[in-house]
Design a protein around this nucleic acid. Structure first.
Lengths: 335, 335
DNA sequence: CTGTTAGCGCCTTCAA
DNA sequence: TTGAAGGCGCTAACAG
């Protein structure tokens, strides 16, 4: 792999001149520039970003950590983030934490060692030590949290209008004639999960349905655990009329429990959820879904991150909420 | 961001010793090691991979280029590749080409500048100049092609048992009573697309259905273009009994044409395809699908790549084919 | 075992 | 406008 030195040699100029041609930071006379470019082509030279980064301490790279690449929501987020990054000449390195707190920690460390200039983070299911995030930010590596917003950490965040969106979904279930509606959630330590529960409550209240805390089933975002919990709770009658999930992994768990219990939607029980699921799971009837603007969430988050990277570090933390919409399909129907 | 020098200073040792502690390449006495580790923790030191890479010319990084992150097949591939990479302490940087040949070219250049040690490539729809690939390989950056296998380039590749899989799908359609079966494909310049057509032919032949070349509709992998083509061809009667697609983007295009023409599956026309689609598209009836082992494809491809990186460069090129299976759902049913 | 030192490839003053 | 030289942070000899 040729270096700048080789290029200089072939072009018959100094390395400085070659560098000037490449960066364009210093004017170079026409004839020399032509010679240099010829040499570059001839050698098929590609500037070594590693060396450049070391010198300039600019890596032009962002990191994004998501819990799972196979829940269609996250790849879409990544797409959006990548688009925003690219628009500003940044690259994106995407890694997944498998919703494992330890792994998230080591990934943060890895990204830091790679000297990414900022990180987009969807926190792992496990309780994220708050200071994992604060430490990074203090070290000068800005972080923007997406989708799942940790509590009590003053960090930039982008998510959906959680409360409105949940309310929308639950209202729809109510309109379809369901009254005993279970909500299965992620950890209530996450701000946005709590807001979604809030939306659920509001919908019930608006319909004059009395509150029943036993219908709120908090989970840990791990499909197998969720499935186990639901299998158990769904084995005692009477069944609820409907189940509403606040996120994709949870929905996956619930649907598995339905399958294991031989329940079909909407015949035996109605169903609606946040987030599209991949089709390669078990359900045949199409699923009523709250669709988040996943691409935009990624896009906007990356923009905020880039602004912070290239702006003052003392700016107020930004909280952005985007609207979601309801996609009505079969699973939520009347029985 | 503290450097190794700072750590040495705080620990009261030389930079060499710190380096030895970190890399473990040279034994260090207990007391010094403890002091160094304390200093590392105290400073929250993270080794600068950029500098390390410059020195060692090992980046421990792989690149993967896919045409689209929102077709669920690709994120799964990426997941697999990431898992295999991580198992060998490699990171993966994932970028998408939007199926744009130019962009693919610049991404290859980018990855090369980033000094990734190898590249997993799903070639873009546009005709990939063969030498784009050969040039990289000649420059010592191994490439493994996934899913779409370009013609006449001796390159490692991992894909599915294309012919068998296609045959399986078409046989199923035949068993469901369909005889005039259209196959919509990607560019036939891709080896595996041709093999899929081959499987289609074989299935027809096995059923004694006469060959009709006008039922083979090659496309360019771009959903909008495919949709336009199908809208046109599906407006002349008689309609075919069924449509079979050789890949996800194509299927998306075909389904849009169905929608635009008011055709529903399987009532008006039966349908089956390679690749799961995301649910956020237009179809309500579930879709019969040839499911590729996407995760495994990524995983195995990364393994092959890593073997090549760390092995002799003159080895024979590897061609790996994994079996796919048929997931029968509603869209392929009898009318 | 521990310390010293020479670069890895590049950019960026600074002089000429 | 061009060239020379220092140094980014680290590792890997090598010398002590």
């Amino acid at each position: 792999m040729p270096s700048i030195k080789k290029v200089a040699e072939v072009a018959g100029v100094s390395v400085g001149t070659v560098s000037h041609v490449i960066t364009g930071s210093v004017p170079v006379s026409e004839p020399l520039r032509v010679k240099v470019q010829a040499a570059i082509r001839k050698l098929n030279y590609h500037p070594n970003h590693v060396a450049r980064s070391l010198k300039t301490s600019k890596t032009w790279t962002l990191g994004i950590i998501v819990p799972d690449l196979t829940i269609s929501f996250f790849p879409q987020v990544i797409s959006g983030a990548e688009a925003a990054a690219r628009a500003r000449d940044y690259s994106l390195i995407a890694v997944n934490s498998n919703d494992d707190g330890e792994r998230q920690k080591s990934l943060l460390s890895l990204l830091r060692s790679q000297r990414v200039e900022g990180i987009l983070l969807v926190v792992a299911a496990a309780p994220t030590p708050l200071n994992q995030i604060s430490l990074m930010i203090d070290a000068g590596i800005p972080i923007v949290c997406l989708d799942r917003i940790p509590d009590r950490v003053p960090v930039d965040s982008v998510s959906v209008e959680d409360q409105d969106a949940a309310q929308l979904g639950v209202q729809h279930l109510i309109e379809m004639g369901h009254r005993r509606i279970v909500i299965v959630t992620g950890p209530l330590a996450l701000k946005n999960e709590r807001r979604r529960v809030q939306g659920y409550r509001q919908a019930l209240q608006g319909a004059g349905i009395p509150r029943d805390e036993s219908l709120i089933w908090p989970g840990n975002l791990r499909p197998p655990d969720i499935a186990a919990m639901c299998r158990e709770r769904l084995s005692v009658s009477p069944l609820p009329d409907a189940v509403f999930c606040t996120n994709g992994p949870t929905a996956l768990g619930v649907l598995r429990a339905f399958r294991d219990r031989g329940l079909s939607t909407p015949r035996d029980i109605a169903f609606a959820t946040f987030d599209e699921l991949t089709v390669d799971d078990i359900f045949t009837p199409s699923i009523t879904t709250i669709v988040q603007p996943a691409f935009d969430i990624g896009y906007r988050a990356a923009q905020i991150l880039l602004d912070r990277i290239n702006g003052p570090s003392n700016a107020e933390s930004v909280t952005l909420r985007l609207p979601a919409h309801l996609e009505i399909r079969a699973s939520s129907g009347r029985r």
